[in-house]
Design a protein around this nucleic acid. Sequence first.
RNA 1: GCGGUCGUGGUGAAGCGGUUAACACACCGGAUUGUGGCUCCGGCACUCGAGGGUUCGAAUCCCUUCGAUCGCCCCA
Length: 418
Amino acid sequence: MGIPRGTYDILPNEVVTWHYLEKIARQLCERYAYEEIRTPIFEETALYERGVGETTDIVEKEMYSFTDRKNRSLTLRPEGTAGVVRSFVENKVYAELQPTKWYYFGPMFRYERPQAGRYRQFHQFGVEVFGSDDPAIDAEVISLGLEFYRSLGIEGVRVGINNVGNPEIRAKYFEKLIEYFTPFEAELDTDAKSRLYRNPMRILDSKHKRTQEIATEAPSILDFLDKESMENLEQVKFYLEELQVPYDVNNRLVRGLDYYTQTAFEYMVEELGAQASTIGGGGRYNGLVKELGGPEVSGIGFGIGLERVLLALKQQNVSIPTAAPLDCFLVSMGEEAKKASVRILGELRKAGLKAERDYLDRKLKAQLKTANRLNARYVVILGEEELANNQIQIKQMETGEQTSIAMDKLVSYLLEGK
RNA sequence: GCGGUCGUGGUGAAGCGGUUAACACACCGGAUUGUGGCUCCGGCACUCGAGGGUUCGAAUCCCUUCGAUCGCCCCA
């Protein structure tokens, strides 16, 4: 019996790193005045069918769906937005003070072949803002995401932004694209051909040489935007500049989910492996709240793939805090000393110190070795002699200095040295 | 769903048809009696992902299967 495909265990060693990511994200969100929301890890399947879009790859072939004992179809969440929107609607949060600014953190599930930076259970940190159409909010959200990477010390994150208009505009644009590419159909590579009627925008970033040539002359979505969308894009750009967020307008940027309107953006970093250059993305979804049964409230958010963030950290050799070292390791010899050391251990811990002892009946030497391995700052040695004198030996591991002190001075001694 | 590569102890790996499966690291123990990080010595794979086949003989060749990994599609 093994671990399910595309999943992995996060062992204690790595958990430290995850705590760190969460801490950075939380602190950041706090400063931006976002609040954490926790929604279920699974939802009714219909939520994603309606919310994410029936024709998206996610819904068509990547959902982890199952029926429960009452035959209800449920799905492990493939992304965060739909559930958060559902919660926003269901709890009538739109009736409260707006905008609503939320963030979340947690596992997502997609049935795909695992590869570099892609898993079936992966983790996202995301943000959603409801109730404001102000382009300044778009800029805030984009800037918050970028700040996250920066706080972690990841370099060279590029922000790509675009405006994808609304579903009507996109439909019209798709038509034009198809119209444009159809005469070249025979010359397109096989991938592009298959994309032609499904998602012609994808042809635009083809890696195939001839396809690329053809695509250079293809119409840009920016020429199809209505006045409102155009203006919106300009405003977002303006505020990004105010926030000193560098960006590139990328008129070929599309996102995989159907619900996006207006602003769409991506965070990218070079050389992360074929799948992983995009380390986060998001956009506006002005129709989604209504689509899911709420009032006409607009929204915008992003999702950041944490496995990919970890990849970037690793690749850029960014150092990450490690677990706190042991304050003290208790070494004891003999039955009586053991009893005393167990008692002392409890006292040290009550005093707030990180303390440990040997539970494998190791010899003195091996106990010291263990203390060393555990990175203990101090070792306390307790044997017959010490017991008789009510003293303990305390040794500072780094310097090797060892002194004898009264047993009841131990806690204060260690707290001082901390 | 499709394609490439790979699968030997806790880990990294050698071996690629012939009696006891290198080596390194890790781990455990020891180098006279109560002291770590260095050194030295010793221990640690009824077995080479699993199943089948070829052969006098296979970790080494063939088939199947499972798994990992990378890539395509798509995405975080």
